[in-house]
Computed example of a mutant assay.
Amino acid sequence: MSMTTSTSSANQVYLFRLEALIKDGGTAVVRNIIDQKLENVPLHKVLANERSKIFTLRGNRAIRRADYELLYPATGIPKIESIDLSLALCLLQHLKCFQFNRDYIRSTLPNSTDFSPDADLCRLQIYRSQIASMQSTTAVGETEFRMRWTEIEEVLLRLNNRVQQPVYDLREIIDRSKYFPLGVADNMEREEHIVGRNTSLKRRIEMKTQRSPKDTCIFDGRPIILEDDDMDCLDKSLKWFARGGFGDIYKGEELFDIPVAVKKIKTENDKSMLDITTSEMMVSRIRYQFILPLLATCCRKGEYWFISPYCENGDLAKAIPEDINKTPNELDVRRRINIVFQLAKAIEYLHTPVKNVRDAIIHKDISSPNVD
C-alpha cells in the first residue's frame, strides 16, 4: 500500500470517528437531557400539547415528514429511544416546555467564554452540521481531528455533568468511538459515503482497503442484511461442522476478511422462529469486547441465516476433558482466571440496563458450549 493511500485511509477513519462521537455520544446526552426535562411527564403528552408548533416546524422543513410521523405514529406512542440527534436538538430548541434560550438558535458559535447549557447545545448542533458537511470530502487530517475531537468531547462532558442523572457510560461511549478498531460493518458505512448506498455487500468489500484479521474481528453490532448475490457467493464456500439446537452450523470464508460461522435455521413453528429471531436480533444490538457479535443476517425461502465470527479453538466444553483430574489439558490457572473474568464482565454488561437504549438482558443459557 502506498503512503498516499495509507494516509488517505487514515484520514477517512478520523472523519468516521468524529461522526461516531457525534452520533453515539451526542444522541445519548441529548436524549438524556430531554428525558430529565420532561420530569416524569410522558413524552406523548408533551408532543400533544406542542403539536401546532411541531406542525409549523414541519412546514418550515425544520422537521422532516418521517420525523413528524415518528413523533405522531398511527399506532402506539412515540419513544425517546427512536429520536435521533437532529430531531432531539430541534425539539429542545423550539418547544416552550424545554425553556431553551432562543438567542442561541443561530449558525455561529457562541462566545468562547459562554459555557451555559444552551450555548453548549448550540455548539453541539453546529459541530454536527459541520461534521455532516465534511462527508463530501470523505476525510479529515490528524491535526483537525484532534482539535474537533477535543471541542466535541468537552461539550458532551459539560452537558452530561450538568444534569441530575448523567449518562453513566458516556466515557465508555467516547473511548469506544476513539479507540476501538474498525471492522467490516464500520468500514462499509464509511465507504458508503464514497461509493453510495446502493452497492451490494460483495462489491463494497471488494473496494475496501487491506485490513488485518485482528481489525476485522471487531464490529459495531449493527448487522449487515445480505442480498441474494451475497448469499450465493457465501453459500459456495460453506462447510458443515456442527449441529446446533435449531439447525446446522457451517464455516464460511467468502465476503468477510475472517472465517465466519453461519447458523441456518428453518422451522415451521412460528413461535419458535419468533423466539429465535428475537434472540438473535437482540444480540445484534450488543457491542462489547467479550461478547461474540452478530455480523450479518439474511432470509430466503423461509430459512434464516445468522452469521458470526468463527472461533477456531471451539467452545469451552470441548476444551474441558471429561476426566479433568486425570487428563492433561491446556487450561492452566491463568487461562481459567481469564475465562472467568471475561465471562463475568460479559454477564455484568448484559445485566446492566442502559438508559434510553435498552433494558437489562438475561441470557438464561450460560454454559460451557456457549463460551467460545
Rank of each mutant, 00 (worst) to 15 (best):
N356F: 09
Y288C: 10
L121Y: 07
S82W: 04
V357K: 14
Y179W: 09
V262G: 03
E19C: 08
E144M: 11
L292P: 00
G245Y: 06
E151S: 13
G196L: 06
D228K: 10
K37F: 04
K271E: 13
L89G: 08
S9H: 14
K326G: 01
R222N: 13
F241T: 00
D235M: 08
T7I: 14
L87C: 15
D220C: 10
A317E: 06
A66C: 10
Y68R: 04
L71F: 02
S6W: 04
N101P: 03
N198R: 13
D215N: 11
T75P: 00
T143D: 14
C122E: 10
R162C: 02
R51K: 15
N269F: 05
E253P: 00
K178W: 02
L43W: 07
D232Y: 02
I337E: 03
E153R: 15
I366N: 05
F246P: 04
P321Q: 05
E172Q: 15
Y304P: 00
E192Y: 01
G302H: 03
L95M: 14
L170S: 06
I337S: 03
R146D: 06
V167H: 10
Y168K: 10
A10W: 04
V262P: 03
S200K: 01
I366W: 02
S272P: 00
Q289N: 08
S136W: 00
E254Y: 07
Q210G: 06
S272Q: 13
L87M: 15
L295E: 04
W149Q: 15
I286H: 09
Q165S: 12
S8Q: 11
A344C: 14
R336I: 08
T5P: 00
K318A: 03
S8R: 11
R51L: 05
Y127N: 13
G314D: 02
R287F: 05
R197P: 01
F115K: 14
E254C: 05
S368I: 03
H363C: 03
G196V: 03
R158K: 05
E254L: 02
F55E: 14
R148I: 01
Q165I: 10
G26L: 05
N111K: 11
K326P: 01
Y72C: 06
C217K: 09
Y14S: 12
E151P: 03
V283F: 07
M281P: 04
A346H: 07
S177I: 01
L295G: 08
S2W: 08
K355G: 12
I174G: 08
V184F: 10
A48S: 12
L331T: 06
D220N: 15
I249R: 09
Y168G: 04
Q135S: 13
D323H: 08
R222L: 09
D120C: 13
Y288N: 13
S136K: 12
S368R: 08
D67C: 12
Q342S: 09
I22Q: 11
P293A: 02
V155G: 04
D35P: 03
T199Q: 13
N370K: 07
P181S: 12
R128H: 12
N101V: 01
E154R: 14
Q99S: 12
Y310S: 00
C299P: 00
S200R: 00
S237V: 00
F219Q: 11
V333E: 13
A66N: 12
Y14M: 07
K202G: 00
R211H: 14
R128Q: 14
P73V: 03
S284M: 06
L316Y: 02
P42M: 10
N198I: 02
I152Q: 11
I80S: 10
L295W: 04
E322Q: 09
N60Y: 04
